[in-house]
Design a protein around this nucleic acid. Structure first.
Length: 565
RNA sequence: GAGACAGUAGCUCAGCUGGUUAGAGCAGUAAUCUUUUAAGUUACGGGUCGUCGGUUCGAAUCCGACCUGUCUCACCA
């Protein structure tokens, strides 16, 4: 244990010797949050008051004057007639008071002897985050608020005051406390709580990193080491409010998507994570074992085949926010477990889905950030404008000037070499096209862009294109040079699907570890008949990175996977 | 999986052409002060320099292995 930890444990013992439980069980009823009444609002009200009383139009000058002269509202009001504008009432927790009275009270500097009934009483809990003289900071889930703590003692009796004087010396940064008191404003105009009752709610035995912020928002001694931040996310969340905000945004994002799909009438479902046959994507799985069944299971790499079974079963639309697991490399874009939202809608095709997802993502962007145009890295990404739509061939022609739509394999190979796209002998026509696209186009697509009509070889679950041989009805949306979603008109021809699975099996025999397995039950389902259906998968973590302007997937996962400590 | 870089106090970092007893700021402790808009004043404490091994009279510093992480690349969403 470090010196500071030993000191805190001694403080804990001393608190217990005072007869105080450092980990009390009882509920602490909070009726106020740190941001319920902000300093900015206070100054706005003060500016209005000044303007009304003194006829001051230049409120900024008035504010300066207030700060300079340590304006005392009570004094001014005594000399002037009380303005009509301030008879409106406000409510802070249960106490209703006029705005004027409230301002008078909070301008009393909290120390005068004005009528207690007029004070706005609040009760708040959070972490004790440091003190300077009689002023302390309390941090709750929403932010920080200043406390005024009279070190001469708090309590009804002298005995209580003495106990408090001992207790306050044993309170450390990071301790959870609950206080009640009345709101007031300090001489410099910071809304604060004059503490009248103080309770320790939970003692913190380890010192938190101290992050300093000045008034211009500059951060000093930030807690930035990713290793520590990810392993001790609780510390990260405590001292880095922008991290808390990121996850609030992520939650809003998921909520907005869920609302959008619920409103469309689709059903949120849950499907197995432990699957006897993994399918629905090309990836290497995690393998596990069930003891009672004495049978191997795979952690799902996708839920596609299960959701389509539900469409076979007759639902109009089903979706799932699914944790998927892929036993592959890790990077700032890849975590072994990640979240994918998949949606399947009966009687729709991929043209319809493009419109749907475009509208949904626009809705999400606005719900999360209040605007559809959001900063991502060095770019501003615009989700409001209609997204560009290219076929894959058009996109390649646009960015390389070469039309490859009618080329055979030999010509494609030659073109790839000319474009310095790395290829090897095993690549077929589809893979060659995909490589050219990946090398020459994808990284240039910053604004959301639909790429449609992929080679059939790469899409064993997608329906053949209605008019273009060799292609499937598939699209991806690319945004910030990364795939945002992947969708297709689902293959519902059971004969064709069996053939596609069989060619995947061939790939598997040749050593492709990511080749799909043949799922007999899924084929049986298709043989009963699946309506024409369009499906889509959206990488939730990737979308969260964009919506929160995060540079790595670890920054949008509370607990990214890491090697054991 | 490959390469580059990094690990020193609770936190952020100096020190690293080997050389007294390893430093700073914040945090902490004790006094003092009873205030403020980044940290009042004074004093004090705090370290197995990632781990193990080697070179050397002497290693935080040089060498090797290992552990952990970061970045880039490969696979992938």
């Amino acid at each position: 244990m470090s010196e500071q930890e030993i000191i805190r444990r001694k403080a804990l013992e001393q608190i217990q010797e005072l007869g105080i439980d450092p980990y009390p069980a009882a509920e602490f009823k909070v009726d106020f949050r740190s941001t319920d009444f902000t300093t900015v609002e206070f100054h706005e009200n003060l500016k209005q008051l000044l303007s009304a009383i003194n006829g001051i139009d230049d409120v900024d000058a008035a504010k300066a004057s207030v700060l300079k002269n340590r304006f005392n509202a009570k004094k001014v009001l005594a000399d002037e007639e009380k303005p009509e504008a301030f008879t409106e009432t406000i409510t802070v927790n249960d106490a209703t008071t006029t705005l004027e009275d409230f301002l008078v009270n909070i301008k009393e500097e909290g120390l005068g002897d004005f009528q207690k009934s007029k004070r706005a009483k609040v009760k708040i809990a959070g972490r004790f985050m440091g003190q300077r003289g009689p002023f302390a900071k309390l941090q709750d889930a929403h932010g920080q608020i200043q406390l005024y703590i009279d070190k001469k003692g708090i309590g009804a009796s002298d005995e209580e005051k003495e106990t408090f004087k001992k207790l306050i010396k044993l309170i450390d940064i990071g301790d959870y406390i609950g206080v009640s008191g009345f709101l007031f404003s300090t001489g410099t105009g910071e809304v604060s709580i004059h503490v009248e009752a103080f309770q320790l709610l939970s003692k913190s035995l380890r010192p938190l990193p101290i992050v300093k912020r000045d008034k211009d928002g500059n951060v000093y001694d930030a807690f930035t080491d990713p290793n520590q931040r990810y392993r001790m996310r609780y510390v990260d969340l405590t001292v880095n409010p922008e991290v808390r905000e990121t996850f609030v945004k992520r939650s809003k994002m998921v909520q907005a998507m869920r609302e959008f799909m619920n409103d469309a009438g689709y059903l949120e479902v849950e499907t197995p994570i432990l699957q006897p046959i993994y399918g629905g994507a090309s990836a290497r799985p995690f393998k596990t074992h069930h003891n009672t069944l004495d049978q191997a299971f795979y952690m799902r790499i996708a839920n596609e085949l299960y959701l389509k079974r539900l469409i076979v079963g007759g639902y109009e639309g089903v979706f799932e926010f699914a944790k998927d697991f892929r036993n592959e490399g890790m990077s700032r874009f890849h975590n072994p477990e990640f979240t994918m939202m998949e949606l399947y809608v009966a009687y729709k095709d991929y043209y319809w889905m493009m419109d749907f997802v475009e509208a949904m993502i626009r809705h999400v962007a606005i719900a999360v950030n209040g605007t559809g145009i959001i900063p991502v890295g060095e770019n501003m990404i615009d989700f409001v404008q209609p997204w560009k739509r290219y076929t894959m061939f058009e996109a390649i022609e646009e960015y390389t000037g070469i039309d490859i739509s009618n080329m055979d394999e030999a010509a494609l190979r030659k073109t790839a070499k000319e474009l310095h796209v790395p290829i090897d002998e095993t690549m077929g026509k589809g893979k060659l096209i995909d490589e050219i696209f990946g090398e020459k186009v994808e990284h240039l697509l910053i604004q959301p862009t639909f790429i449609t009509d992929y080679p059939v070889e790469m899409s064993p679950l997608a329906k053949k294109h209605r008019s273009k041989p060799g292609l499937v009805e598939r699209f991806e949306a690319i945004c910030n040079a990364k795939e945002l979603c992947n969708a297709f008109s689902e293959l519902n021809d059971p004969i064709d699907q069996r053939q596609r699975f069989e060619s995947q099996l061939e790939l598997g025999k040749r050593g492709d570890e990511e080749a799909m397995q043949l799922d007999e039950d899924f084929l049986r389902a298709l043989e009963y008949g699946m309506p024409p259906t369009c499906g889509i998968g959206i990488g939730i973590d990737r979308l969260a990175m964009i919506m929160t302007n995060s540079n790595s997937i670890q920054d949008v996962l509370f607990f990214p996977q890491m090697r054991n400590e």
